[in-house]
């Protein structure tokens, strides 16, 4: 049996499959990055040039130098960071309550949160827009933060609920008997064990908040635009400015990449192993 599993052909087949998948995933990214360094002549050349062209920084110089790139970057960072923080804070509290408090139908509530998540944001765009106009609060980053938090909460709650369920309640009780205040129980016992959960939830939340387009398009104005909306500005009446869009795209990818890299280091499997009798 183990012979079969580890036969060279099988191993090779695995790697071939993995390589194909990797190529399929990476190719669009390569297209984006390479295009961002091409000028229009290369881009619109009859057949695609994959690797050998003279790179140019023109696209980057254009998007960073003109327009309000820095402004939009700051907007995006504020919106993504604040809404992620709020989502984790509120979602964590909800998840904790759902995992610990005894009340009728809590499992239903916990799972129902996920159902809410099934509604695509696009469906909510028009009602959201109407609300914002009615309240006369458009063009405000806070509004976007509010909607992103609301949008991400259900998934974060559901995810963190699962993580909290895995922490035996005896650990908290032991800490209480050891003399810990509620805050100490949270910061010194629960949080270290929940790191993985918050990291996973954070990655998802940040990515969605960072990339979201439709709501951002509807709810922001000249000064409150986020980067994805700004990128769409290069779809002009006179044509699509591919080089600039791709340069923008390349820059947009970097922050979530850094965030994910940092957050993923907090994910450790089997954190609660050894806490209680098997």
């Amino acid at each position: 049996m183990s012979n079969q599993l580890h036969s060279p052909w099988r191993v090779m087949a695995h790697y071939v499959c993995l390589c194909l998948l990797a190529i399929a995933c990476l190719m669009p990214i390569w297209v984006m990055i390479s295009t961002s360094f091409k000028d229009d002549i290369v881009i619109f050349d009859g057949k695609p040039i994959w690797f050998f062209f003279v790179p140019t920084m023109d696209n980057y110089e254009y998007i960073v130098g003109r327009g309000k790139f820095d402004r939009y970057l700051v907007n995006s960072v504020i919106v993504a960071v604040v809404s992620t923080f709020l989502t984790l804070l509120l979602g964590g509290l909800c998840a904790y309550a759902l995992a610990r408090a005894e009340f009728k139908g809590r499992r239903f509530v916990a799972n129902a949160t996920l159902l809410v998540r099934m509604v695509p944001p696009a469906v909510l765009a028009v009602p959201a827009f109407a609300m914002v106009i009615f309240l006369n609060v458009n063009n405000d980053l806070l509004v976007l933060i509010f909607f992103y938090t609301a949008l991400n909460l259900p998934f974060a709650i559901w995810l963190l609920f699962g993580f909290y369920k895995q922490i035996p309640v005896e650990l908290e009780e032991a800490a209480i008997v050891d003399g810990a205040s509620p805050l100490q129980v949270f910061f010194r016992v629960l949080l270290p064990l929940m790191k993985s959960g918050y990291a996973v939830a954070g990655i998802f939340t940040f990515r969605i908040a960072w990339n979201e387009f439709i709501l951002a398009l509807l709810l922001t104005g000249r000064n409150t635009r986020t980067l994805p909306v700004a990128a769409s500005g290069f779809l002009t009446d006179t044509g699509v400015e591919w080089g600039r869009i791709m340069a923008m795209g390349t820059l947009i990818v970097i922050p979530p990449l850094l965030f994910t890299f940092f957050a993923a280091r907090q994910i450790i499997a089997g954190m609660t192993a050894g806490a209680v009798k098997g």
């Binding site: 035996p168 005896e170 650990l171 009780e173 032991a174 800490a175 209480i176 008997v177 003399g179 810990a180 205040s181 016992v189 270290p192 064990l193 954190m271 609660t272 192993a273 050894g274 806490a275 209680v276 009798k277």
Partner: peptide, 20 residues
């Protein structure tokens, strides 16, 4: 009174060790 105020130490049946 809260557990803290009772001046008590306890060994749990399930150990309840802090895994981290």
């Amino acid at each position: 009174a809260a557990p803290k105020a009772r001046d008590i130490a306890m060994v749990f049946q399930s150990y309840a060790l802090y895994p981290h």
